[in-house]
Design a binder for these strands. Structure first.
Length: 370
DNA sequence: AACACCCACAACCGCCGTGTC
DNA sequence: CGACACGGCGGTTGTGGGTGT
């Protein structure tokens, strides 16, 4: 156990990597790729790397990979890590997947050396993300995975993980839709369902003093919702929602029929800004996750993709076509994604964190009341 | 200058899941 | 079906630079 064949032939070198070793490894990877790490040390340029394949892999992934960002973490990145940790717990690789150019090791180190302390200083328990006063007992790492304490959340997370592993966006949509269909069907009318994405948090319970607004739908139009932010007890970022055109005329942001008890909504010049969690009591969600600029472009620019999406929605829900006129009256359906960038604050955040144009997560939800 | 201490980061270790034979 | 190899992950340790005394 633990021993690898590549380590048996000769005692592997340990400790810090020398520049020469790095150079050899880079040369090798550039030339041959890294199909099988265990053979890398044997194949590397003479006189051969006396390193375990595992060590080569780690060195490459954590340090030598060309797409690594390196350098200090921005405040936005730190906030995002905190928010993701609140949802994902110590699943560093999952967290790292949301931060372009950052490795799980880097994030883990940052968490252990810096963020943990900062949170504690702010009076927040770093494992539970709750105020320290409210955390019972001693601080054994009982909430290493915060969401796992709740079996529903744990199930949810496994669904998330599974869905993330699906390569096809359409598969994701179908899978998540299936999940949500079954999820919503088992929810009583006043029970909570949560958007099944790690970037949507399960947190703050807005009190009656908040501006929480009930948003409902009682007919069958699709409601498109773009989420690319996360809210946590410590931070709340806004989520944007693009409404069907018919609702643009409404005098306020209340839509009868869709109970989103925990959404805090703000009417922002005709656009509805949402914060916090979302709940639903019935209906079917369709979900789309766009994880890269390429994905977005494919949807924004690709008629075929739009067609597939529309067809899927038609087929699955027999619903009316998606709404193209979200705001300006001339947007294509998938341009809902672009409304993300009409939120100036969000745009700034994305730019500041170097995510803009590179990688971000967006969730589009189509809703049809049954 | 020497030492202790702290901190950030790199690397290792052990375990687990998966694929293959 | 079991054994084995391998990759991946999270926890932990090691290392080196910076800073204070």
């Amino acid at each position: 156990m633990g021993g690898h064949s590549c380590c048996h032939k000769q005692k592997p070198r340990k400790g810090l990597w020398s520049p020469e070793e790095d150079e050899k490894l880079i040369k090798h990877i550039n030339k041959y790729g890294h199909g099988c790490w265990s053979t890398v040390p044997n194949q590397a340029e003479l006189p051969g790397l006396q390193r375990c394949g595992k060590s080569c892999r780690l060195r490459w992934i954590n340090y030598l990979r060309p797409d690594l960002k390196r350098g200090t973490f921005s405040q936005q990145e730190e906030d995002l890590i905190i928010e993701l940790h609140a949802v994902l717990g110590n699943r560093w690789s999952k967290i790292a997947a949301h931060l372009q150019g950052r490795t799980d090791n880097e994030i883990k180190n940052l968490w252990n050396s810096s963020i943990k302390k900062k949170l504690t200083q702010r009076g927040i328990d770093p494992s539970s993300h709750k105020p320290l006063a409210k955390v019972n007992g001693d601080d054994d790492d009982k909430a290493a995975s915060n969401s796992e304490k709740n079996s529903d959340s744990s199930d949810l997370q496994s669904v998330i993980d599974k869905s993330m592993d699906e390569s096809s966006t359409l598969k994701k949509e179908i899978f998540l839709n299936q999940f949500l269909t079954s999820s919503s069907s088992c929810c009583s009318s006043n029970s909570m369902g949560y958007l099944p994405f790690p970037q949507v948090s399960f947190a703050p319970d807005y009190s009656s003093s908040s501006q929480a607004t009930s948003i409902t739908i009682n007919s069958n139009p699709l409601l498109w919702l773009n989420c690319n932010a996360i809210s946590t007890p410590s931070t709340t970022l806004s989520t944007s929602m693009a409404l069907p055109p018919s609702y643009e005329e409404e005098e306020d942001d209340t839509i009868p029929g869709w109970n989103t008890g925990n959404w805090k909504s703000i009417n922002d010049g005709g656009r509805i800004m949402l914060q916090s969690t979302c709940s639903f009591d019935s209906g079917v969600f369709s979900c789309l996750e766009l994880t890269s600029e390429k994905d977005v472009q494919a949807h924004l620019g690709g008629e075929m993709e739009d067609l597939k999406w529309s067809e899927y929605l038609h087929g699955a829900f027999q619903s009316q076509p998606m709404y193209g006129d979200l705001e300006t009256g001339n947007q294509s359906p998938m341009n809902t994604v672009s409304t993300l960038y009409q939120n100036q604050q969000l745009q700034q955040e994305l730019q500041a964190s170097d995510i803009h144009g590179k990688r971000f997560h967006s969730v589009s939800l189509g809703f049809k009341h049954l």
